[in-house]
Design a protein around this nucleic acid. Structure first.
Lengths: 260, 260
DNA sequence: GAGTGGAATCGAACACTGTACGAGGGGCGC
DNA sequence: GCGCCCCTCGTACAGTGTTCGATTCCACTC
């Protein structure tokens, strides 16, 4: 049983190519042109080297993708330990979402591989600390952080799919909205209530709409977690949440204030 | 702007090949051998036809994948309209999870394409009905169902990654657990609390553990949704949830009873 | 029945993929 | 100078999605 994470990077004196360099170039290529554009030959071209030279530093493409994915996790801002747990969890959620947006291809990767790289580990460790501070204990620590992670990942996935569909069809948000209506008219003929729902978003800024959807779900998840804490009678965090929801302005990042 | 869903299937009198037949064969192939094994040539071989004949019924591989994914959504059991909304939502969540498990490759597909096939549409329509019955209104209908969907998708994704990793490394759950511990020892050296968490699962049945994690998160999401209903003072569903959580046995499917 | 037109199938070919292999270069310690 | 080992790279192979044009086959009209 071997893994990228056990086998050390080749000695640091590598003259022309190095593992971190390769990974960085791969991320750049992926960001610029997407998953399909990442081939060993193209990556090598960007590095100014031969295609097969890469295989000295990395066992195969799959392993390279493992490294690349962990690089993404390294960009996710760590939750602040001194904040209230709701605030820390919120910030983490928004941070992860933002990171996945800047590297849309990473969502696909997450579905294909188990993530055990150092950056991912550090992130989950911090998440556990956060929930420990909130009052979760034992297996409930994993359950709580898994729940939060699952929500963010699952909420972001379709958003990314939308964005990348826009990107490689070359259309903008509005055109796609209209096109969607056309498809709807046919495929949702038996579901008039769906068309009504669709019409509700006419002329609205899709980015804001999606952010509100995300925020609503996040609030639900956090409320649910808080309900568990109350049920289990855990000692609360140093900043107990007041009745009727979190204090205004702590949960939502700047851009969203008053955007109801 | 064209799409598979607007352009009709070729006339039904197709002698040797037909679109549904192709899709069915593709699903079988994917189930048996996974995403990498699906090539047009192999698919054609399974159909007993030439590789390029498929292109008469389907524009390209991407379009085929759209069809295949919607086929998966067709297998998800629809939420029962007459059940209480919590029960309906729970059943839907477990149903979707189970379906994604029997077609692990579909998780990858969801990350890459926007899903607007007829089966997916029917499913979301039913989901909207369910939440309408629960008392959600207007845009909160979408927000609620998006939240539930996001959680299930995000929770299932890593589980699927695990399973498929087991599948194509040929190892069983226990061996992978041990191997994971080895990797942990190195990569989580700075995070001793993580190792403690890991040790907590020694000897436990991973399938049950994961099911409990899933159930916990689902309860959180449902509790959070219910909290929103209470806050907004919505008229409750015909089966109001009693204080202190749902009645025992309605939320959890059979296999999980008393497995705490 | 002969003939015709379109529906459907298919083989060959193209540009591209990941990677195994082995030949080489270049800098180091002796 | 010599050998050694790290590293690079060209070549080659099997396989990919898809285009194109030729071919088959069936349902129809005369």
């Amino acid at each position: 049983m071997t893994s990228v994470w056990t086998r050390p990077s080749r000695p640091a004196k590598s003259p022309a190519l190095s593992r971190p360099q390769i990974v960085r170039a791969a991320v750049e290529l992926l960001d610029a042109q997407g998953m399909d554009a990442l081939s060993m030959r193209r990556l090598a071209a960007r590095l100014g080297s031969g295609a097969t030279s890469i295989y000295w530093h990395v066992a195969n493409k799959d392993e390279l993708l493992d490294l690349v994915l962990d690089e993404v996790f390294g960009e996710v801002p760590l939750p602040e330990p001194e904040a209230s747990w709701r605030e820390a969890a919120s910030m983490f959620a928004y941070g992860l979402r933002a990171t996945l947006f800047t590297h849309p291809w990473s969502v696909t990767l997450i579905g294909n591989r188990v993530t055990v790289g150092p950056n991912a580990v550090r992130l989950t460790a911090r998440l556990l600390e956060t929930f420990t501070g909130a009052g979760f204990q034992g297996q409930f620590l994993d359950r709580a952080s898994s729940t939060l992670l699952a929500y963010v990942l699952g909420a972001t996935t379709p958003e990314v799919a939308w964005r990348s569909m826009m990107a490689d069809s070359g259309t903008n948000e509005h055109e796609l909205f209209e096109a969607g209506r056309e498809v709807m008219k046919q495929t949702a003929r038996d579901h008039p209530e769906l068309l009504a729902r669709y019409a509700d978003y006419e002329g609205k800024d899709a980015t804001i709409v999606r952010a509100l959807v995300f925020d609503f779900g996040l609030t639900c998840v956090l409320d649910g977690l808080e309900a568990h804490l109350r049920r289990s009678g855990a000692s609360p965090s140093p900043f107990p949440a007041p009745e009727g929801g979190p204090p205004p302005g702590t949960d939502r990042p700047e851009g969203l204030k008053g955007a109801r």
